[in-house]
């Protein structure tokens, strides 16, 4: 069994509650419920509105609406966007791949870079180079990623013309895509790395005082091999927890970076939806992002149980 029953139950409850929240919010917010459900781009005659009210089930009681809401979710009916003139689910699916193309390489690179450098920084003596690396990562840690995006965009694209200034759409070769994705991925992976770096560094600082390190030396291990053969695995446990917890935060960061680089992903979609108050799209995005965050947590739990044998036993 990969996951304890208790954990699985918590995931289900979380999913249930967050989805319910998504049902409640548009119906309790001030303003016209039709507008809240269809978006401000929807303008229609009184007759159509009455028809739509029936179609949307707004004439029914809340509990009926709630049941319908779940039915819609299981059949992937997330509503219709009058701003984009498309089904919400198909817009999101179209845009999601660019967000994922930015997010996953960044999380992976950030994890590798951050844990590796953080581990070395915690392990080595605190010399000038080490301190400088920590300062640099701390500075990235303290920056809103979109602001880094603005600076990079200005310097590399606007000033030096090394990278395209405008965003891109689905045409283009692999190299073209890579050129467009390079700066956003660079920024997001450094940002992710900075968070992993700080945690890994602190974690190694604790772990290296433990007795098993002395024992590893007694067995004849020397230098960095103590770090990589003994400390690294123990110290990376908090980082795995962090990567799961951070996923939502990084995802949000990626959304903003997308907007800066005018990438055609979910971030830009949310931005457009926000400007035109296209509520169905906003809600749809919220649902899909929730599913992504929960999936990431689920994955991290499994990874954790592979690294820490003590967890597998309890599950």
């Amino acid at each position: 069994m990969l996951l304890s029953k208790k954990k699985a139950l918590r995931y289900l409850i979380a999913l249930f509650i967050i989805f319910t929240l998504n049902f409640i919010i548009p119906r309790t917010m001030p303003g016209d419920p039709i507008t809240n459900l269809l978006g401000e781009n929807f303008i229609a005659s009184e007759a159509t509105i009455q028809e739509l009210k029936i179609e949307l089930g707004l004439d029914k009681s809340l509990s009926f609406q709630y049941l319908d809401y779940w039915k819609d979710i299981f059949t992937l009916h997330l509503g219709y966007s009058y701003h984009f003139n498309q089904k919400v689910i198909s817009i999101i699916f179209m845009r999601m791949k660019w967000t994922l193309a930015l997010l996953f390489p960044s999380i992976l690179l950030g994890a590798i870079l951050g844990t590796l450098l953080g581990a070395l920084s915690g392990w080595k003596k605190n010399n000038l180079g080490n301190k400088a690396t920590t300062w640099a990562f701390l500075a990235v840690y303290s920056s809103p990623p979109y602001f880094l995006g603005i600076i990079f965009l200005y310097v590399f694209s606007f000033k030096w013309g090394l990278f395209p200034f405008k965003g891109f759409y689905e045409t283009g070769t692999f190299l073209d895509v890579l050129q467009h994705l390079f700066l956003p991925i660079l920024i997001m992976s450094t940002f992710a790395a900075s968070r992993n770096y700080m945690i890994m560094r602190g974690s190694v600082l604790i772990e290296k005082e433990k007795l098993y390190v002395v024992y590893a030396r007694a067995k004849g291990l020397y230098g960095n091999s103590i770090l990589f053969r003994h400390i690294f695995k123990n110290a990376s446990l908090p980082v795995i927890t962090l990567i799961a917890l951070d996923f939502g935060f990084l995802l949000s960061g990626a959304l903003f970076v997308e907007i800066v680089f005018s990438m055609n992903g979910m971030g830009t979609l949310i931005y457009e939806a926000l400007l035109s108050r296209d509520y169905p799209v906003l809600q749809g995005c919220f649902l899909i992002i929730t599913i992504m965050v929960i999936a990431a947590n689920f994955f991290a739990d499994i990874l954790y149980s592979f690294i820490d044998p003590r967890v597998k036993e309890k599950a």
């Binding site: 918590r10 995931y11 409850i13 979380a14 509650i17 967050i18 929240l21 919010i25 548009p26 917010m29 001030p30 303003g31 809240n36 917890l245 939502g248 935060f249 995802l251 949000s252 959304l255 949310i270 926000l274 108050r277 509520y279 906003l282 809600q283 995005c285 919220f286 992002i289 929730t290 965050v293 929960i294 947590n297």
Partner: peptide, 22 residues
């Protein structure tokens, strides 16, 4: 249990949605 559930809420997207309404 409540903490775990709150941990999984995508916080910034939720605030964006709330701020869009309010």
């Amino acid at each position: 249990g409540i903490t775990d559930i709150f941990l999984m809420i995508p916080r910034i997207p939720l605030i964006i949605m709330l701020a869009a309404f309010l």
